Amino acid sequence: MRWKTLDDMEMGGKTVLVRVDINVPLQDGQVSDDTRIRRIAPTIHDILAKGGKPVLLAHFGRPKGKPVAEMSLRVTLPALEAALGRPVTFVETPSRAGLDALPADAVVLVENTRFTPMEEANDPQMAQFLASLGDIYCNDAFSAAHRAHASTEGVARLLPACAGRLMAAELAALEAALGRPARPVVAVVGGAKISTKLDLLANLTRKVDQLIIGGGMANTFLAAQGHGVGKSLCEHDLADTARAIMAGAAAAGCEIILPSDVVVAEAFAAHAPHQVMAIDAVPEGGMILDAGPETVARITAAFAQAKTLIWNGPLGAFEIAPFDAATVAAARAAAKLTQSGNLISVAGGGDTVAALNQAGVADDFSYVSTAGGAFLEWMEGKTLPGVAALEITD
């Protein structure tokens, strides 16, 4: 897969439509976490350095196709100006004449693209209107690339298009992890339910050498093998599905690693009385809340033999101590191997990012994606419309 980047585009005197993700959290009417805003700054600075005028397109919240005052992008202006170190012009209703009248080095933010139903419908009329505003399209919002919307897919097919710095970095990291990875490849998939990750599990068993399954979903696989899991979170009705996934993995030469020992408590509560026990010793009233030390040792040994690691989801109930122990220990082991140059590590998903931050190693992985749904769909092997629109086909 190939796509153009900012380096491939001549931007002098051009108006550049830049799709960004600044859908950031608010507290008391102010941006409370500006991570997403800071991550788009390099793209905007580079466009300005190349003589282009960046016009930012973005959504905010879920206004369901109509203007909602509290979902106006105007609220992001102070954080955006602080991250860029320059003023930003806010435009509610853009026009080409209005944009052309602004200084050549202006940075423009257009009001929420989802204030009209035409955006999410990928209406050709809206795509044409957006295209009329600029000369070049740059997508720097991988997190919205799984949506075929007017500002992510429609307009990309009407103008010369490229990936921004953040988008290009994300695509390069994911290509390195799943496209042409250094082997052996190990994947960690955790979380509560396998029902939400069936496509992901099926795709990974065909792509990786070892698949480590943790969290609540591991309980479903363990139950499918005949182990008692007490009153643990478990989708007993998906036992046949779990067995089918294991059979598919075996046929593909993918080893599935499940917990061999677990941390069991009688209540889902912080610092609840708990003990480590073998997987075949879980009592009927017990609740599996984390992987045990023997399992963690097996996981870290797999990491040590691997060249590439893909991680999505925690190994236990990491939100409450001490049931974050397995996730933290495994994450720190992966980070150490990454920093020593022995492992390419790519992680993504909301809970995963939170877990890595909790372990203090988010900055030590090769790449950590904040994209959520787009990251998952890429791992599932699905075509992302916003990425496909950027591909070079010749």
Rank of each mutant, 00 (worst) to 15 (best):
D21I: 11
L26A: 05
D46T: 15
V18S: 04
A49G: 10
G29M: 08
D34T: 00
I40S: 01
T35G: 06
G29W: 10
M9N: 01
L6M: 03
D46N: 09
K4A: 10
A41G: 00
K50P: 09
N23T: 09
S32K: 02
G13I: 08
D46C: 06
I22F: 03
V18C: 05
K50L: 12
G12W: 01
P25M: 04
E10K: 12
K50A: 11
L26P: 03
L6I: 06
A49F: 15
D21T: 10
K50I: 02
V18E: 02
Q27C: 04
G13N: 02
R19T: 04
E10A: 11
K4V: 02
K14Q: 06
T15A: 05
A41H: 05
R36Y: 09
A41F: 02
K4E: 02
Q30L: 10
I37K: 01
M1P: 11
P42L: 07
L17E: 02
M11L: 15
V16N: 01
K53F: 08
G51V: 14
D28K: 00
R38G: 02
K53D: 07
G29S: 07
I40C: 13
I22A: 12
D8Y: 09
A41R: 05
L48H: 10
R19D: 13
D46S: 13
A41I: 03
H45R: 14
G12D: 12
I47D: 11
N23Y: 06
M11E: 08
V20C: 13
R19P: 06
V24P: 01
G13M: 01
D28F: 02
K14F: 02
Q27G: 12
K14H: 07
T35N: 03
V16M: 00
D46E: 15
D7W: 04
N23G: 09
W3F: 15
Q27V: 04
V18F: 08
L26T: 07
M1T: 10
D33I: 00
M9L: 11
H45Q: 14
R39N: 13
P25Q: 00
P25C: 07
M9I: 10
E10Q: 08
V24D: 09
G12C: 00
A49K: 15
D8M: 09
M9E: 06
Q27E: 15
H45S: 14
I22L: 14
V31Y: 04
I47W: 13
R2V: 03
R36A: 13
L6T: 03
D7Y: 06
L17G: 04
E10C: 00
D46R: 14
